[in-house]
């Protein structure tokens, strides 16, 4: 039987997350091809609709990687996004979808390994949860 390959969408910001991603590349670490990365200037740009649409279009897992709450370059973008993620998790539960399919992470700009660790954690979680539909 073919192993389930989850479809994952990862939004990441141009600041801390981007720098961590670059560092991870320099370390020779790359993400698997079933995790699709979408860059945004700030995680605060991501709206509830964008998260839902990713699921509507077949994502089994959606996650966001951004700055730490006290070092967001745009001050409160990550805080706003975290609130929106909490709202969507609540919606997903009411819609019969596991809220664990959506997650948000704050990481440090220098931690390339974390960028990859997060991706692997999401990949494993998606495999456990199975396909969304």
């Amino acid at each position: 039987m073919q192993e389930f390959k989850p479809k994952i969408v990862a939004f990441y910001c141009s600041n801390c997350a981007s720098s961590a991603a670059e560092i991870s590349n320099k370390l020779g670490l790359f993400l698997p091809e079933n995790i699709k990365l979408i860059n945004v200037p700030c995680t605060g740009r991501i709206e509830i609709l964008h998260l839902l649409k990713a699921f509507e279009n077949g994502a089994d897992m959606v996650y966001v990687v951004g700055c730490q709450e006290d070092s967001c370059q745009y001050i409160n973008g990550i805080l706003k996004l975290k609130k929106r993620v909490a709202h969507v998790k609540n919606m997903l539960e009411q819609m019969g979808i596991e809220p664990q399919r959506l997650e948000v992470f704050s990481l440090y700009a220098g931690k390339g390994q974390d960028f990859v660790n997060i991706a692997n954690e999401m990949l494993n979680r998606a495999k456990q949860l199975g396909p969304i539909y």
Partner: peptide, 20 residues
């Protein structure tokens, strides 16, 4: 913001997911 539009944020994941 044409640099990071709603169209992109909705359609880019849709297109990329189809590639998997």
């Amino acid at each position: 913001m044409s640099y990071c539009s709603d169209e992109m944020l909705v359609q880019a994941p849709a297109v990329l997911l189809k590639q998997i």
